[in-house]
Simulated scan of single mutants.
Amino acid sequence: MRRIFLAATIAVPVQASAHPHHYVDQQVHLSIGVNAVELAIVIVPSSQDGAAIFSTIDNNGDGVVSDDEGRIFATNVVSATRLTIDGQAFTFILADVGIPDETTVASGTAAITVNASAELRLADRQAHSVDFSITYEEFSHDWFVQPFLYPNLLGKIAQLEIDRSDRAGKVVVRFSNR
């Protein structure tokens, strides 16, 4: 397990257009705040796999992902996540899903997005451990999980440690509050 020790810093996820990929790129932005953890999942299909990925989501094969098909896909992805904070399990609630049209997905330039959140309340002046993993492997086994901290938490942190597992799709964020 690799350990990274940081002074409290913040980074903000930025949405950008995808460039053609030669592999399926799967990322999770895990944004941690005092009252919530938000999940932004981005899957960019490769040009070789884009059509097959789209057809996996388009259950009835009509070339259009309906709201129901999108919700089923997003629910399957979110249900493959695990979030525990200080040993207590939390469940994400699906917020929305974005699936571009069939041609764009097939070209390998589409970003499929799934957003979800979990409400919580972090205690002040306490050490916390946020454990997150994702095991959805329908398209690829590789996931990159990047944690972010909201300003309402960042200003309270005295020490921050991020552990990335050797296994893709897992991260542990430990911090102590002032």
Rank of each mutant, 00 (worst) to 15 (best):
V12K: 15
A18G: 14
H21P: 08
H22M: 11
H22K: 14
V24P: 00
V24M: 04
V24H: 04
D25W: 11
Q26L: 07
Q27E: 15
H29N: 14
L30N: 04
N35I: 08
A36P: 07
V37N: 00
V37D: 01
V37I: 11
E38N: 12
A40T: 06
A40C: 10
I41H: 02
V42A: 13
V42L: 10
D49F: 00
G50S: 00
G50V: 03
G50R: 00
A51P: 04
A51Q: 01
A52Y: 02
F54E: 02
F54N: 01
S55K: 01
G61C: 06
V64S: 13
V65K: 00
S66V: 10
S66C: 09
S66Q: 10
D67Y: 13
E69L: 06
E69P: 05
G70W: 05
I72P: 04
A74I: 05
T75D: 04
N76C: 11
V78S: 01
A80I: 06
T81N: 07
L83I: 06
G87V: 06
F92G: 01
F92M: 02
A95I: 07
I99T: 10
P100H: 11
P100G: 12
G108C: 05
V114H: 01
S117F: 09
E119R: 11
A123Y: 12
A123M: 12
A123K: 14
Q126E: 09
S129C: 09
S129D: 09
V130A: 02
D131V: 08
T135K: 10
Y136I: 03
F139S: 00
S140G: 05
F144V: 15
V145A: 12
L149S: 09
Y150P: 08
Y150R: 15
L153R: 07
A158T: 14
